[in-house]
Design a binder for these strands. Sequence first.
DNA 1: CGTTTGCTTGATGTCACTCAATACATGTGG
DNA 2: CCACATGTATTGAGTGACATCAAGCAAACG
Lengths: 219, 219
Amino acid sequence: MFRSSGCADPDFGPHNSRNGKDIHSISILRTFHRDQDVFECDHRCDWWYRIVSGATRKYRIRSDGRRQIADIHLPGDFFGFSSNEKHGFSVQAIVEGTTIACYPRRMTEALADSDPSVARLIRMGTFAAIERLEQQMLVVSTTSAPERVKAFLVHFRDRVGRSGEDGLALPITRYDIADLLGLSTETVCRAFTDLRERGAISLEGPRQVTIIRPGSGKD
Amino acid sequence: MFRSSGCADPDFGPHNSRNGKDIHSISILRTFHRDQDVFECDHRCDWWYRIVSGATRKYRIRSDGRRQIADIHLPGDFFGFSSNEKHGFSVQAIVEGTTIACYPRRMTEALADSDPSVARLIRMGTFAAIERLEQQMLVVSTTSAPERVKAFLVHFRDRVGRSGEDGLALPITRYDIADLLGLSTETVCRAFTDLRERGAISLEGPRQVTIIRPGSGKD
DNA sequence: CGTTTGCTTGATGTCACTCAATACATGTGG
DNA sequence: CCACATGTATTGAGTGACATCAAGCAAACG
């Protein structure tokens, strides 16, 4: 359905561990259906996660009933970190068949204590999560709606891993984009057509976008 | 000027280290003037930081000249983490005399490799940073301007460390709040008066706020 | 300088509707 | 019983009309 980023991840190959146990051996792989929960907001933080293939959304239902999406996770992304007892967010699979590596938290922390390379790996994962959120913050705070959508597209393309070609296949609906950017679906639709008419993007289909002029209004 | 949270931090007291070196001994304390740069966006990420007292803003200048504030750091907060060579953001002191503990990155990473408790400390700091950003995301994405300001106030009060009293002293100007929330200063002002007239907050002064009804529209 | 208010214009949310694609159950004829 | 068509409901996407809210400018206030 959309370009799978696969498992091409240099950081996550087999690595030297001093005691035989590595981070792979303590993880379990789970596959999720579309819209299936990975965890809910009131669950305990007993696991860490990493996307192998597919995509997930981290969201929260506001008191007024709106759904706020805080993050989209793509292959290679870590998530589920928390210093509290419970995550404040729920996470759902977006794509049918999303595969996620699940790491039991206590065991992984113990492994990190004994193996500095594991600690380093987790550290890099959290650093990447911080940068993802910071970029996301810039995108969300873009004032004009079309520019916000465009910033999202550029950011998303950069995350998917630019492979030279310009075509970008969105795994998410307009509704998801709206809840991620704090806009209404209608405004997102209008932003897409606006960007297309102004020549900033071209649409081969609703989910198939080509960014033509990423320069204007990049940040 | 505003309530100093001081240094009351259990995690950061002297801790057991196996080789005599602890994270305190490799850090240096620096004091900054108001609006003085801690680092700029194109600088290399050679240091990690932690606020001891005062406050800082992490910001970035957009291509259209607007200043986007991505985070406010308060005492106890770690910042400066990045998996890239350079931070994409600049950080400035907000409060005169802001004191920051600076940790040389390579040395701290080496210390983390040899001392699991240091690695754990850094991990907790990054987890807290992630949660800060996620909460910030929820605040920024609140649709209505008054509700967004109110969400900011509630979030900020929770971060400053609720000590029972309701009074909240803001270390930052309306302009900073505007750039943090993606609003104009005028709209922030109007939101303050609107919240005051509706009885949600009371203002003892421009920087002295009391949150009366945090419940409505909390998230 | 930081904060606040009034006024106007423009942008966005809301409501309503259309359109296309899909899935699923039902019906019909061989 | 099976193959194939039809009707219906559902979902995602796009558009238009209208009211509302926030930005921008100006000016006053402390």
